[in-house]
C-alpha cells in the first residue's frame, strides 16, 4: 500500500477532513458533505479538479465556481497544508492509509453504488483490495445473548470456508462476532468503522490478520474521531454498499442504527438484498423488516449453499440498478 498522496487527495482532504492531529480546536469548519458536493460539481463543470485549488490561481477558480461558500473559509481550509502533513504523518506511523475518490484504489463499488454520496475520503489499515471483493454483510446490535454470538460466529466461519469476504461494522456484539468467526477460520474481512480507526489499527487482536492481508479496517471518518450516532448511521450505508448480500442478525423495532440502516436499504437505496435471520426467536425487529420486504435468510449450512446465495444476489445486480445514471465526481486523471 502506498502512503503517497495525489494532489487531488491533498485538496479533498484540505477541504473536507477535520485533520485531527492533536487537541487544537479547528478554527474553521471543513466542508460538509453537501457543501463539498456542490463545489465539486461546479469544478467539474469548469473542467477543473480539486488539485487546481492548490495552484496559484486558486482564488479565481473558486470565484468562477460561484458556490455560495465563503471564499475566506475556503482559503483557510486550503491553507491547512502543514496540518495536513502532520495528520498524514500521524496516520502513516500507525500504518493507516487514505484514499480519495480521485484515487485509482478507491473502492469502485462505493462510487458505482453511492455515486455522489460515496465518501470523499476513506481511511484504512490493511489490504485496500479487500473492500472490492464484495461478500456477505452481517449487521446487528451491540448487546446480544451468547447464543446469538455463537450463531453469528458460525455465519462468519461459513463465509470464510466459502472463500467469501465478510463485511461488518467493527462494533461490539454482532459485528465483532461475525468478524471473529471469519478471521479465526482464515477468512477475509472488511471492518467498516464509525470511529476509532486509530485505536483499532493498533489492537493486538487485529495485528496478525492485518499483516496477513486478511483484514482491512476502513472508515470515512478521521482515524482519531470519537463515536457519534450520525456517523454510525452513515457507516451502515457503506457496509451494505461493499457487500453482495446482507444478513441482519437482530434488530430493535423502529429505532436504533441497525433498524434504520436496514429500512433505508429496503426502501430508498436497495443496494443489496437484505435478509433477516430465520433460525430461533426472530423478535419484533426482524419481523418488522420482513414486513418491509426483507427475505428470510435461507440459513445455508455448507459453503456451497452460501456461495449460491451470494452469487445469485450478485447476478441480480446491485440495487445500484436504479442509480446507474449517477457519475462519480472525479476519476483519476493521471
Amino acid at each position: 500500500m502506498t502512503f503517497e498522496l495525489s494532489s487531488n487527495t491533498q485538496a479533498i482532504l484540505l477541504l473536507t477532513a477535520p485533520l485531527m492531529a492533536g487537541r487544537g480546536k479547528p478554527s474553521v469548519k471543513p466542508l460538509a458533505a453537501g457543501e463539498y458536493r456542490r463545489l465539486a460539481r461546479r469544478l467539474r463543470e469548469q473542467q477543473r479538479q480539486p488539485a487546481d485549488l492548490l495552484e496559484p490561481g486558486a482564488r479565481e477558480i473558486v470565484s468562477g465556481c460561484r458556490v455560495e461558500l465563503d471564499s475566506e473559509r475556503l482559503a483557510q481550509l486550503l491553507g491547512r497544508g502543514f496540518l495536513l502533513a502532520q495528520a498524514v504523518e500521524r496516520w502513516r506511523t500507525r500504518a493507516i492509509w487514505v484514499l480519495s475518490r480521485a484515487d485509482a484504489d478507491y473502492p469502485r463499488r462505493l462510487k458505482q453504488r453511492l455515486g455522489e454520496d460515496a465518501p470523499p475520503v476513506l481511511y484504512g489499515c490493511g489490504d485496500a483490495a479487500i473492500p472490492g471483493t464484495g461478500g456477505l454483510a452481517v449487521v446487528g446490535s451491540r448487546n446480544v445473548h451468547e447464543a446469538l454470538i455463537q450463531y453469528t460466529e458460525d455465519v462468519g466461519r461459513l463465509a470464510a470456508s466459502a472463500g467469501r469476504s465478510l463485511v461488518s461494522g467493527g462494533a461490539r456484539g454482532v459485528d465483532r462476532a461475525a468478524m471473529r468467526g471469519a478471521l479465526d477460520a482464515g477468512g477475509r474481512v472488511a471492518g467498516v468503522l464509525a470511529d476509532g480507526l486509530e485505536k483499532a489499527a493498533m489492537l493486538r487482536e487485529h495485528r496478525e490478520a492485518l499483516m496477513e492481508r486478511r483484514l482491512v479496517l476502513i472508515s470515512p471518518y478521521d482515524p482519531a474521531a470519537r463515536f457519534q450516532v450520525g456517523h454510525a448511521m452513515q457507516r451502515n450505508k457503506l457496509i451494505y454498499a461493499l457487500s453482495d448480500a446482507a444478513l441482519v442478525v437482530n434488530s430493535d423495532y423502529g429505532k436504533g442504527g441497525t433498524w434504520a440502516g436496514a429500512v433505508e436499504q429496503l426502501g430508498k437505496l436497495k443496494l443489496v438484498p437484505i435478509h433477516v435471520r430465520a433460525n430461533g426467536e426472530v423478535g419484533k425487529g426482524l419481523q418488522g423488516l420482513l414486513e418491509r420486504g426483507a427475505k428470510p435468510w435461507p440459513e445455508p449450512e455448507t459453503p456451497e449453499a452460501l456461495e449460491e446465495i451470494l452469487d445469485a444476489a450478485a447476478d441480480e445486480g446491485p440495487g445500484a440498478l436504479g442509480r446507474q445514471g449517477l457519475r462519480p465526481l472525479f476519476e483519476q486523471r493521471d
Binding site: A21, F82, L83
Partner: peptide, 16 residues
C-alpha cells in the same frame, strides 16, 4: 509536542 503545542498552530502555518 505535536499534539499539545504544534496542533494549536498547525492549521495556520504560512511558511515552513
Amino acid at each position: 509536542f505535536r499534539t499539545e503545542v504544534l496542533a494549536e498552530v498547525a492549521e495556520r502555518i504560512s511558511l515552513l
